[in-house]
Design a protein around this nucleic acid. Sequence first.
DNA 1: CGTACGGTTGACGAGTGTCAAGGGTAGTGG
DNA 2: CCACTACCCTTGACACTCGTCAACCGTACG
Lengths: 247, 247
Amino acid sequence: MNYEADQTFPADLGAEPERCATCAVRNSSLCGALSSDEINDLNKLSRPKSLKPGQTFVFEGDQIKDFANVTQGVAKLMRGSEDGREQIVGLLFPSDFIGGPMSDTNQDEPYTIEAVSPLELCIFPRDGFEVLLEKYPALERKLLDRTLNELQLAREWMVLLGRKTAQERVATFIMHVAEKMRNHGCQGTIGFDLPLGRADIADHIGLTIETVSRQITQLRKEGVIDMQGARHILAYDADRLRDYAGF
Amino acid sequence: MNYEADQTFPADLGAEPERCATCAVRNSSLCGALSSDEINDLNKLSRPKSLKPGQTFVFEGDQIKDFANVTQGVAKLMRGSEDGREQIVGLLFPSDFIGGPMSDTNQDEPYTIEAVSPLELCIFPRDGFEVLLEKYPALERKLLDRTLNELQLAREWMVLLGRKTAQERVATFIMHVAEKMRNHGCQGTIGFDLPLGRADIADHIGLTIETVSRQITQLRKEGVIDMQGARHILAYDADRLRDYAGF
DNA sequence: CGTACGGTTGACGAGTGTCAAGGGTAGTGG
DNA sequence: CCACTACCCTTGACACTCGTCAACCGTACG
């Protein structure tokens, strides 16, 4: 059934589809749970998709039909209100998985996912993916691990939103982004670009644009960070930054 | 090995250990994924444990050795700082599962779990449970579902903590508790006891005791809720309350 | 060169936190 | 059975952080 399967060279036993073999998140994403053979199942379901900044992948209230892996770029997961308030409840980096509730009931998606930078996804239909979840326990286990990590992160953010001062929030946010960027090899430890503008930062840490701006200025004046332009941050002293991030 | 196992009547094939058969959360907890036969495996590992209000099950920084199901009572999952600030990141009701990160690394538990009312747990060693997770896919699937639900809840709370006013927070909190209580059959829809005192409510919704108190008074004065004593709430008009809860 | 957009800065005000005092209620001991 | 005590809750006065409104600046792009 799989045209890769009737290969003749034993050395090719593990041959993967081109798109998977060259995928930047082949091992760091959920797909890392699948062997070269197994990944064919998922590959057959999947196709790439590109989004420009500002484009949405799902809207609040939609029924989500497709799941996806982020292969490149950054997206935001957000909830908005009629009166203009907005809260970003998560950021999606390369290797992150998009496929929310997955509960038995086909309820509507409560959040909007929007590209923040040019975004590359590898999408596949929900139904087909759930079949594979049953078929490959390692896949389900990896999804569980990922979900537990996101829960952990969400709870840390609850501490930030519930109990930290404006200054601590900004410092914590910068630390988190620095770590994400380091993990994805985007630049070195001390210098990196913020993937979000001031408005999105504010919506992520529960402040206003102005307060975010003031606190960044403050951190600059106190020499905790340095900046080149509005987006590029230099965090020489990680320990000092951690002191500013609160508990 | 299990004295219930050597029964003589075929009708008893599905006989369960006494403690499981009479357990209040036999089906609503993770155990609901296990058949009468299968649950013996877990039962052999488990034993009951009681905690009085104020006693802790795990401390921040501990290595968690045991997992547990809540069979009765309410507990809080919290994170504190040296300078006295505290954030409650979750409440644990009957049928809820305690067994956090479960990640490969044996990292320390980041949160403290403390009984809020007289608490009954069914605890079992982490190692043994993880073996059962491998053995019974339905168990792992249920754990995944549960974790996804908690993630969903955590994100809703991020919206509350990041963007809602004091009044909206209190109204939302009351709604959530009302629903939990209804689900657990503790009293009717309109009248129920708050499981938390003002201090814990404040630490859960990111306010101070005084502000919580003032907002509850406000809701009373506006006729949205009524109270009998400081703990018992009467929420006649659920729709009205929802209007006060924001988005 | 002009325009638009995002970021910064300042002045002011609202909402919530802080500090302090006073009241209820439940549990304890006489 | 009543009084005392302790704890939690409520209420008030005031302070402070952060939000709001508005002007200005810098950079990118047409």
